[in-house]
Write a protein that binds this DNA or RNA. Structure first.
Lengths: 199, 199
DNA sequence: GTCTATATCCAGATAGAC
DNA sequence: GTCTATCTGGATATAGAC
């Protein structure tokens, strides 16, 4: 084979992989891991059954790839907000708006959100858990730092920062649910989340 | 058969049913519907495979029976709090304490909570959804009434009562997750939930 | 690289003995 | 009422043609 063909093949390979992942994202997000059949993914993505197994070793591998992307994306996104030139409270507000906006517009962002929910409800060995969720504390830790700074300058109420950070994301997770089960439910004002921590 | 035996049989029948439901509750709550095998329930409850199908038509029937119990229980519990001689804000606090307490002590209450989460993530026909979740708005509506009263007397902040009620339960759902995936995570102070609505 | 056809396994549900 | 043995369907994963 000439280098050119190899290159083209690499591109095709990448495209197919992404196509499969993109279809799987939507299906896994709405049905969960166990309830998703390879045939569902195939139907959604318009490819053949066998192709999926050409690119991935197993159903599990596809799922965990998506979980991993979800976690690293949300981690990066939080770190970006943290680095913005805003006051701590404004950073909290920005995060709430950003995530609620994602859920509302039903983009991949929100599917990723649901993937993580499903993943955290799955039973797995302690090792797998560590492997999959090892970096999942990045957003919580980032939010904790923001909260602490806000407490220092008197913008945020005095309460345990970890508890507050978890409560913040927990509320967002819950909201993602409601939106999933009742798609035309109106999302709450982001400000309601800010009230949770505002002094 | 003598009446006496019939009576005894009825008792045994009831006991077995409850035994199956009790085992199924724990397994469905931690694994979800699709990922739960009848053999898991059987293993947990120490009964035979066939017995389950003697008492229930299908795996689905067991699950929906549990969902139904969960919803009616939580509805009743909210209505009880609403009827207490407390101020609106105190009722919110009482609800938060009651539910967080349940989650913390890991009783059936908390399993039921998770069952509902799984159910709301399941795909089902609109008719089934209506059938299963028809009464599920009772807690939200009860909380809405409490919030409105609190707004009238100036105890609770001015914001959309529906949004606030949903946010309240959404946060609790999210908390139930965290507790499930990290069992030794310390539950937040109920007061954090109160802050969400307090003026 | 992509498809169709097939092997293999396992879960839900049933039948019938005790 | 309870159990064991079995049927049956369907889902994951593989093999091999194109």
């Amino acid at each position: 084979m000439s280098p050119r063909n190899e290159e083209q093949n690499a591109i095709i390979k990448d495209e197919r992989r992404e196509q499969i992942l993109s279809a799987a994202l939507k299906v896994f997000a709405t049905r969960g891991f166990a309830a998703t059949k390879i045939s569902d993914i195939v139907a959604k993505g318009g490819m053949s059954h066998g192709l999926v197994y050409h690119y991935f070793k197993s159903k599990e591998e596809i799922f965990f790839e998506l979980v991993s992307r979800a976690l690293s994306t949300s981690g990066e996104s939080l770190l970006m907000v943290e680095a913005m030139p805003l006051s701590p409270l404004q950073k909290v507000r920005e995060t709430a708006k950003h995530i609620l906006g994602g859920i509302d517009e039903w983009e991949d962002t929100s599917y990723y959100f649901l993937i993580v929910i499903h993943a955290s409800m799955m039973e797995m060995t302690a090792e797998d858990k560590e492997k999959v969720f090892g970096n999942s504390q990045v957003p919580v830790e980032s939010m904790m730092r923001i909260i602490k700074q806000g407490q220092d300058i008197g913008e945020i109420r005095q309460a345990d920062p970890l508890e507050m950070a978890i409560m913040f994301f927990a509320a967002l997770q819950g909201i993602a649910f409601y939106k999933l089960s009742m798609p035309n439910f109106q999302l709450p004002d982001p400000e309601l989340l800010v009230y949770m921590v505002k002094k």
